[in-house]
Design a protein around this nucleic acid. Sequence first.
RNA 1: GGCUGGGUGGCAGAGUGGUUAUGCAGCGGCCUGCAAAGCCGUGGACCUCGGUUCGACUCCGGGCCCAGCCUCCA
Length: 462
Amino acid sequence: MLRLFNSLTRQKEEFIPIEPGKVRMYVCGMTVYDYCHLGHARVLVVFDVIVRHLRNLGFEVTYVRNITDIDDKIIARAAENGESINELTKRFIAAMHEDADALGVLRPDFEPRATESMDDILGMIQTLIDKGYAYQGSNGDVYYSVSRFDGYGRLSGKRLEDLRSGARIAVDEVKRDPLDFVLWKAAKPGEPNWPAPWCAGRPGWHIECSAMSVDCLGPHFDIHGGGMDLQFPHHENEIAQSEAATGEHFVNYWIHNGFVEVNEEKMSKSLGNFFTVREILKSYRPEEIRYFILSSHYRSPLNYSDENLNQARGALQRLYTALRDVEIPTGDASTVPSYEDRFVAAMNDDFNTPEALAVLFDLARAVNRAREQADDATPQLAATVKMLAGRLGLLQEDPESYLRGRVIQEGPDDETIEALVKRRQEARASKDWAEADRVRDQLSRMGIELEDGADGTRWRRI
RNA sequence: GGCUGGGUGGCAGAGUGGUUAUGCAGCGGCCUGCAAAGCCGUGGACCUCGGUUCGACUCCGGGCCCAGCCUCCA
């Protein structure tokens, strides 16, 4: 039985799909005006793992992750660069796909874009106006009237009067209530715009997600996800828009992932303390980043540091080392049920990936032990490691080539290393230990570690 | 100020009302020409003060501290 933490009720609940055997899920994706940073990577990886787990449980999942390709920042950045918004967003959508692919994130089933969903957006705004939930201001903008919607604040645990008394809400003459938010923004001269019954303009940020999710998944679906910072106001506003427009309950389960932090502080664009995925990929391998993200629970903070990435590196080396030299049976290989049960139980408990990884380490020990004892169970144990790790999108590479792999382009090539290893082998054969150790030190300085085994010496980059 | 969430061993990070998390690091041993990898063993923790309980790190209450949201943000 799958239990997940629902932000709406702030407790773990049993997951019961609307339609038996099927899950409809929407996750807020990126605004594409810059490269993905680690915070974006976390959303991508966390929900990728959630989708994989749901599918492993046998659910038929429809996964939608949108792209916001029109908003103020995109307009501003395009103007800065002297390019069109289409050129800008095209580049960063491609970059996002590259990063996601590198991290082993499976593509969503649908990836709608705001600019391609104008009809749905306009239709929903019109419905909201017709039903009296929205109004046009004197400046042409269309606003959502927050006080008209009864449940406003339920998701974020906020009361309207608290929000109103907050000093951080700017006074705006055009709005009837300072809490009202914009659905349609009138275009200023020179700004990109789309025709609309009210005035040419562009959608506000929140309406696109309401329109696209309802369009792709219907008015009522199972799971809606995103970063914790979207809980308010973005998701709160989505609920208000969607439920007012459709008259139906919008989403059953809300899932929000925690932040990536740097020195105990949220990683964000505004603080400027962010690291892009492609920057980190210069020093670490994609799988190391993925492991690092999964090494803490998705709702906990994830502290970015070299030390923690290095720990991820070491952990993967241990797991891959356990898989080395084991003939893993292909096809529907028999696996070891007790470990699989533990793994599934961990994932069923609100997607507890650290616990699931612990199962992998217990298995790795079992593999190593079995191998030492020449136990026939070794291949089954190894197959179980690989199969379960695969559900997290990990450990699918060939172990030997993974361990020999490199991150940075500098350093000796394989031929150079092989030659030195051979030279050392010869020294060892003639028991010239001084020479053998000298060569090993030389390789060690190049970042190569050696392992002498019964059937020769093997090496790996560290 | 309002509202969330959290404080676990040297570090990272799960979990549980009484039993080894796990990984890295440490210590002892096995293995090794020496190492590495691996295996075996081992030390080390639950912010603080009260309460409930036969028993609390785990439940309840107060306090202290941290992060986040209340403004664009994943």
